[in-house]
Structure formats: C-alpha cells, structure tokens
Write a protein that binds this DNA or RNA. Sequence first.
DNA 1: AGTTGAATTATACAATTGCATAACAATAAG
DNA 2: CTTATTGTTATGCAATTGTATAATTCAACT
Lengths: 215, 215
Amino acid sequence: MTDRRPYRRESEERRRDDLISAALQLVSEGGPQAATVRAIAQRAGVTSGLIRHYFSSKEELTRAAYQSLMDRMIASSASVLDGGPDDPIARLAWFVAASLSPPVVDPVAVGLWAGFLHGVQRDTAMRDVHIATYLAFRDVLQSLIEALPRPVPSTQLRSDAIACNAVIDGLWLEGSVLPEAFATGEIVNIGLASVGAILKIDLMAAMTATTRATP
Amino acid sequence: MTDRRPYRRESEERRRDDLISAALQLVSEGGPQAATVRAIAQRAGVTSGLIRHYFSSKEELTRAAYQSLMDRMIASSASVLDGGPDDPIARLAWFVAASLSPPVVDPVAVGLWAGFLHGVQRDTAMRDVHIATYLAFRDVLQSLIEALPRPVPSTQLRSDAIACNAVIDGLWLEGSVLPEAFATGEIVNIGLASVGAILKIDLMAAMTATTRATP
DNA sequence: AGTTGAATTATACAATTGCATAACAATAAG
DNA sequence: CTTATTGTTATGCAATTGTATAATTCAACT
C-alpha cells in the first residue's frame, strides 16, 4: 500500500519545459509514434497522469512542443549574428556559414522537423507557427541582403530572399540527412558560392577574410 | 457461422501493389501513425491478416512502400524530360520548371516524404533507398549541366549539381508546404533565376522562348 | 466433378495506447 | 503543530496495436 514513489513539487514552468523537452527528445529518436504519453512522462521523470495536469490533451502537448522547438530555432538563428562581423558582406557570409554548420545542420533537428510536418499540414495552430517561423527566418535573411552594397539594383529583394533561403534550406536538409555524402566544409562552401552567385557578390572572399581575421 | 465475406483471388503483384498504395495513401493523409495494419487492409479492400501473407512484418511493408514511392518519384522526374526540348539550355530550364510545378510540387508528396524520414534515418535498407534516390536525382541534374555550353570552365560539376539540386529541393519544399505563400509561377521563376545565376546562364530567356515555341 | 493447394477471412491475444478518476503526500499557510 | 491546497502518484478502462493461428473458400488441375 504505502509504497508510493517519493516526489518533489516543481514549478509549472519547470514541469512544462521538462515534459516538452522529453517529447522532443522522443520524437527525434523514434518519430512521432515514439512520443507516447507514458514514454514522455518516464523521460521527464514523472508519471503519466501528470501530463494531463499540465496539458489538456496530448495534442496540446504536441502543439506546445512544436512551438517550443520553433522558438528555439529562431532564437539560435538570431544569436548566430551576435558574435558576427559588422561588414554587411561578411555578415551575410557568416550567417550562411553558421546556418550550414553544426549545430544547425543536425540529423536530430531535421528528424524533429519532419516528425512535426504532418501536424503542421493538419493543425491550424501548428501551421500558423510554421508560417511565422518561416517568415522570421526569411526576414532575417532579407535584412542581411538589404544591407548589402549591391552591384545591381535590389528591385527583387523578396525574390532574392526566397531564393537564398531555399538554397540554405536545401543544403541544410541534405547535409543533415546525409552527412557522410559530403566532405568537410563542402556544404558551407557550396552555400556561400550559391548565395553569392544569386546575389552577385563574392561571399567566399568575405568569409575567408573574416575567418582569418577572427580565428 | 457461414457468413464470411466473399472474395476474389488476385495475383501477388496486384495485392502487394494495392497494399503498398493503401499504406502510402494513409501515410499521406494522417502521417505514419495512421498507417496501421487494419487501416491499410481496409483501404486495400482486404482483411488485415492478408498483410502478413505478403509481408513478413509491417516494417517490411513500410520498406516496400518507401521503395515504391521513391521509384515513382524517380520515374516521374525522368519522364519529365521525354517531351522536353533538345537545346541543352532549354532542356535544363524545362527540367527545373517541371520540378517546381505540380504534380511534383505537392503537399501530399512532401507529407509522404516527411512521414518516411525517420525510417530513413533508422533503417539501413530505407537509408540505402534514400541515398540511391538522391543521387539519381542529382545525376540527372548533373548530366543536364554537363551538356550546357558554359561560359566558364565546368571544373566544379559536382558542386554545381549539389547547389542546383539544393535550390530545387528548398523551393520544392517551401512551395509544397506553403503553397499560399507564393504567387502563381513565382517559385518557378525564382528557381529558373537561381539555377541560372549559379550556372551563369540565362534560363529565364530559354524558358520563355521554349514555352512560346510549344504552347 | 472431385480433389487439392493456397489465398483469404476470421478470431484470438498480449501489449500498448490516451484518458479518466481516485488516492495520496509535499508544501505553504494558519 | 495543524490544516488545507493541489501537485503528484497510482490504478483502471475501453480502444487499438501488431502478430499468431485456425478456419474457410476460391480456383486450378486432373
């Protein structure tokens, strides 16, 4: 009878975060089907009943987990620029290189992203989060492009941003899913060359100059 | 007692195809978790026991379904070029445009692709299929690039193919997941412009000329 | 026609699922 | 030191899961 597991009371924020992190871990490891209520609870170090105390349903926990994941991705993408150079060209090169290197390029991340895609296509709330995240990324890129001293008139700012974003996305995807298919630094170099070609700017030179300056 | 459902015997090929198609339909509609043994059987018009008669496990059916999906995608991509123009530049433009238009760009297709990604990362057989498919796509692109009359030496054939493939993949992804975020033809135009910029060739001109020639 | 092989259905089963509810115990307030 | 609040565990339940096995009935072959 009296053999219940001892426990500590934690703040709502802490518990929600733990449950969300556990859910994300499980989705990344075993896909959406691995993130069962019981597995999430066990991973978070609680019993399954507690989930219903913080989330009205598993679906809501899933939504919260996706929201949290997207928040982290946006934050990590924005933080990349904090330590970066000031020169507009070098700054863009820096951003592209960081977006195509670990920890952004990561099998776990792409697994998570894929694991939530069906929810994104089906659930309105998740779809809104996805749209907002996509636009946030693209806006960062567009700002960087806008700041460039361009040899050509920047009448197609939107198109350029979409194009560069697509290159980065495609390379991110392929580099994350098939890391062994590319040599070290190959993805970054191709990204710099491609974005540079699209924008008609030499990003490679800017990048090597910057990395040489800040080792 | 004697109230069993009447049935017809079918060829092994037919039954396997039906089961695979049913599984793909369900994954596209509701994600991997929707493709249960019973749902697949019902969709294929048989009872669930039959699945084990044609596949040793659900995992094997999943593998077969993924294999089939990739085969179809490769075939549909290759068939695009059949009716295309002969001029190398126009031919590449044609291929890019087709790869960024329906039915290649399709929410269902990207949902399916994502639904299998975890299997690809975990199951060796599925991973091999994925690698082969990725390389097949890239090789088609590389052949098209190789045939171009290039203003610059094509010393970086591999890099160019990876880059162009990434642009197409990224645009395919974004256009499929967020169709409403782009104007009609916008994705195609950006794809043509980007691939053209990377390869330093005017694909837009080639495309408009071709479409004008073959309406 | 009758017989046989196997494709197909039907049923069963243990394990797992999300969710609901009740019992408890940790912690803050009195 | 009590008391009350509620965070947390424990237990239960109906539905669903993949798989195994037995029971049938279709269809080909003589």
